[in-house]
């Protein structure tokens, strides 16, 4: 008899790795093969994952097209399965994955776009904070100015890019959810600051 632990590990292998050999003997066929039954879950899993990934990276999906995005997503999840019950985190490794796929190709700008979209996602769930009021700075004695320390707003990320990624993003119709607070940087400029 398979323990609950063994059953869950075998089922996970079947869904993620596509091998249902270990789990099949423990599933009732009942008019439909165990493999076909596992494939229903395998399909649900991929659809759910791809949908969540596309929600996080709408610009990448638009740039590469839906079909190719699905292919990329399937490769990505095989290498970087979700590690939490909360799907917010699945995109964390996506830019690195795209680097492995596209570094030194004409498509290497995609990984920078992915970094920007991941930064957006992080900003969307970052802590709230009141933006700095600059007025009190007027009353700081000049000799104390060197002692001032500023903290970056929690919902602020810096993304350095070789490519004009903000311009690419705007030309592709934007991400739809966000505002960017910088003019589109020139190629070679180092900053595309984003905040919510």
């Amino acid at each position: 008899m398979l323990s609950l632990r063994e059953l869950q590990l075998s089922f996970t292998t079947a869904v993620l790795d596509g091998s249902s050999t270990a789990i099949s003997p423990w599933i009732r066929a009942d008019g439909l093969s165990p493999t076909a039954r596992v494939n229903i879950y395998r399909n649900n899993f991929h659809e759910g994952f791809l949908k969540a990934l596309a929600l996080g990276f709408p610009v990448i999906q638009r740039l590469v097209g839906e079909d190719y995005f699905r292919q990329l997503g399937r490769l990505f999840v095989a290498e970087h399965p979700s590690r939490a019950g909360n799907l917010h985190h699945i995109g964390c490794a996506f830019a690195g994955f795209l680097r492995d796929q596209f570094a030194a190709t004409p498509y290497s700008y995609l990984l920078e776009i992915a970094e920007l979209e991941w930064a957006y996602q992080e900003c969307l769930i970052a802590a709230d904070a009141v933006p700095l009021d600059l007025t009190p700075l007027q009353s700081v004695a000049p000799e104390r100015l060197a002692d001032l320390r500023f903290e970056v707003h929690p919902a602020c990320r810096m993304v350095s890019s070789e490519f004009p990624i903000v311009r690419i993003l705007c030309q592709s119709g934007g991400s739809g959810r966000h505002r960017t607070h910088r003019p589109a940087p020139r190629r070679g400029s180092r900053a595309a600051a984003t905040e919510k």
């Binding site: 323990s3 609950l4 632990r5 059953l7 869950q8 590990l9 089922f11 996970t12 869904v15 993620l16 423990w26 879950y41 649900n44 899993f45 759910g48 994952f49 969540a52 399965p81 979700s82 590690r83 939490a84 019950g85 799907l87």
Partner: peptide, 25 residues
């Protein structure tokens, strides 16, 4: 249901075997 094993999450509502072991768990 369950959705993870060995640290890998399937983010789906997966069925349990209805055994005494699973009930205790």
């Amino acid at each position: 249901s369950w959705s993870s094993a060995g640290g890998r999450f399937l983010n789906d509502l997966l069925p349990l075997p209805y055994t005494e072991e699973a009930l205790t768990h």
